[in-house]
Write a protein that binds this DNA or RNA. Structure first.
Lengths: 109, 109
DNA sequence: TTTTACTGTTACATTTACGTAACCAGTTAC
DNA sequence: GTAACTGGTTACGTAAATGTAACAGTAAAA
């Protein structure tokens, strides 16, 4: 893992080191129900630059939350998918989305 | 609310606008089981500067997640507590902490 | 009279995050 | 032979986040 925690760290901090930041939760949420190509992720996140998206994907992969599969095709095709570790976050990601729907966007579930 | 969402925003993004960032989840986690004074929060977060802690607390208050109570005493005493809205996040905060304990820190629950 | 306690604020500097624009590779379609 | 497709990378500049250090204010204690 890229973000190595120290053992007496706050457990909430430990999690947020992996999924915090402006983009990672969104990326994981997008991947939580689908394997997706780079371009598909980018299309669902119109406000992130390709450069930063690449960086975030690399970090998520380094942290073991997603996997990257590159096919030997031209034009290139790259798939991103949740790993087992990433999938263990899915309930939390759904709760986060549900909370946002209900409490922030004011949509009834 | 300070962070006004637009209606067709990603619900995960909507939540992360309120609790994202390096510090807010930690602050909320610290307050989730206790009303605490400014100094108590600071003592539990040794690496945040007082200036930034003040800013984050103000934003959390502006977003309706915590409340601030200032007592007319010298030396000053200020309490921070979860609001009802903040408390509705508690299950998520606990899940985040549990996930960090188990998956990142490697502690068995 | 000086210090301590507590919760800040302010000015300033620095670090980190993010964006923009240009460029690359290799095959296919025009 | 040139453009388009896809998933990037690189150089560069800007914006946001955070830190540091000093200061404020008032009562009680030393």
């Amino acid at each position: 893992m890229k973000n190595k925690p120290d053992q007496n760290a706050c457990p909430a901090t430990a999690t947020m080191a992996l999924i915090g930041g402006r983009w990672k939760t969104i990326i994981l949420y997008i991947l939580s129900d689908h394997t997706r190509r780079f371009g598909e992720i980018a299309a669902r996140m119109p406000t992130i630059s390709r450069k930063v998206l690449t960086e975030q994907l690399k970090e998520l992969e380094a942290d073991g939350l997603i996997s990257r599969t590159q096919y030997k095709e031209i034009p290139p095709r790259v798939d991103y998918a949740m790993t087992e570790l990433g999938n263990s976050l899915t309930p939390i990601l759904n709760d986060i989305a549900d909370w946002g729907k209900e409490k922030v966007l004011g949509q009834t579930l």
